[in-house]
Every structure is written in structure tokens, then in C-alpha cells.
């Protein structure tokens, strides 16, 4: 009845079903790379705006603190850049993941996608509220670090519901975020490193590991 080959096949089937039913495995490495590029572009735009405003303001205080210009105009433009960056990153991440799920013939929207979304959204939403309140109170210098920390927590939480390696990206974001709390004034650079460079590294690693066509 059961040969060795059949036993092996049955075990592989079991493993596949367990994985498929508990983790969202369609997340593409390209999504990470695309999100990273969006973040770097966003940071570049933000950096230009800040330089532009600080020259206009022509302050003789030479401060590196890029979040210490609470001019309303700059703030609004930075918020706009941030929003646009986030949306672009999300759209590109979605497209590549959609393509991967198509290729692997796994439905994109299902039990695992729902779980992943909820468990990522909880730390992100709370983080968003906290950061908005920080800005209201004028603690702009803490915004970039807080983004990194809450995002890191969201990723560590998400790692139970998708590719387990995302946990390491989460740890890296957390370390970077915590360090940046002591390097006030370099927020944008840390932000670019965390959301730009780390995403690109992670995306490339995941692509290499799971999607590369092995010859």
C-alpha cells in the first residue's frame, strides 16, 4: 500500500498544507526592493525641501536637526511627501506580490492575507496615532525614530504570519530606530537607511532565496 516514495510525498504534502494555511507566502522580494527605492526617493525629496527651506530661512544657527523646523509650509510639504512615498511603496509592493501569487497559483486574498494584514496593522495604527500626537506636541525630532521602532515591532509581529525571515528585518529596524533616538538630528538619514537600504537588502535576499530561477 504505502511505498517509501509515497510516504515521502505524503510528508511533503503535509508540510505544504501546514505552511500554506498558516503563512502568507506570496510576499515577493521585489516588493521589498520597490518599497526601498520609493523610500530613498522620498527621503531625497524631503532632504531637498528641508535644505531649500533652511536656506530660505537663512538661520545662522547651523543645526543638523532636520525635524526642528516647525514652519507650517515645510511641515505640510514633508507630510505630503511622506504620504505619497507610503502610497507608492504600498502600490508597488502590492503589484509584485500580486504577480507572485498569480505565478504560484495561490489566491492573494485569503485567510493568511487577512491574518497578516490585521497583525501588521495593529502596531502600525497605534504607532501612527502616537506619531501624530508627537507632531501635535512639537516633538518632530522623535518622528523618524518612532516610525522605525513601530515598523520594526510590526514586522516582528508579522513574521508569525508570513515569511519567517521578515523577523530579521524587524530586528534591524528596531536596532536602527533605538539608536536613532540618541542621534537626534540625523532622523532623515536613519529613516532612509531603515526604510530604503534595509528594504532593498531584505528584498534582494528574499528574491535570491525564493524567487531566483535556479539554473
Amino acid at each position: 500500500m504505502y511505498s517509501q516514495d509515497e510516504s515521502l510525498e505524503a510528508l511533503q504534502d503535509i508540510k505544504k498544507m501546514m505552511e500554506r494555511s498558516s503563512r502568507f507566502i506570496s510576499l515577493s522580494g521585489w516588493s521589498g526592493i520597490a518599497a526601498g527605492i520609493c523610500a530613498l526617493l522620498g527621503a531625497w525629496f524631503a532632504h531637498n525641501k528641508i535644505t531649500q527651506y533652511s536656506t530660505e530661512a537663512n538661520t545662522d544657527k547651523t543645526t543638523h536637526d532636520i525635524f526642528s523646523f516647525p514652519q507650517i509650509g515645510l511641515l505640510q510639504e514633508l507630510m505630503l511627501i511622506a504620504l505619497f512615498t507610503f502610497m507608492a511603496a504600498f502600490v508597488f509592493a502590492f503589484i509584485f506580490t500580486y504577480l507572485r501569487s498569480k505565478k504560484n497559483k495561490i489566491p492573494l486574498w485569503g485567510l493568511t492575507a487577512k491574518r497578516l494584514l490585521i497583525n501588521t496593522a495593529i502596531p502600525m495604527m497605534v504607532g501612527g496615532i502616537v506619531i501624530l500626537r508627537m507632531m501635535q506636541l512639537g516633538y518632530y525630532e522623535l518622528v523618524a525614530s518612532s516610525c522605525l521602532v513601530f515598523y520594526g515591532l510590526a514586522l516582528v509581529n508579522a513574521s508569525k504570519y508570513t515569511l519567517a525571515e521578515i523577523r530579521y528585518l524587524g530586528y534591524a529596524e528596531l536596532i536602527l530606530g533605538v539608536i536613532s533616538f540618541w542621534e537626534i538630528g540625523f532622523g532623515l538619514y536613519f529613516w532612509a537607511a531603515g526604510f530604503g537600504v534595509l528594504h532593498i537588502i531584505y528584498g534582494t535576499w528574499m528574491w535570491w532565496k525564493y524567487e531566483r530561477v535556479k539554473s
Partner: peptide, 11 residues
């Protein structure tokens, strides 16, 4: 049936 059991073991 094997698939159902695998899924239920982790969910």
C-alpha cells in the same frame, strides 16, 4: 483528509 488534518493541526 490528510490535507484537512494538516491544516487543522496548525490552525
Amino acid at each position: 483528509r490528510l490535507g484537512v488534518m494538516s491544516v487543522l493541526l496548525v490552525n
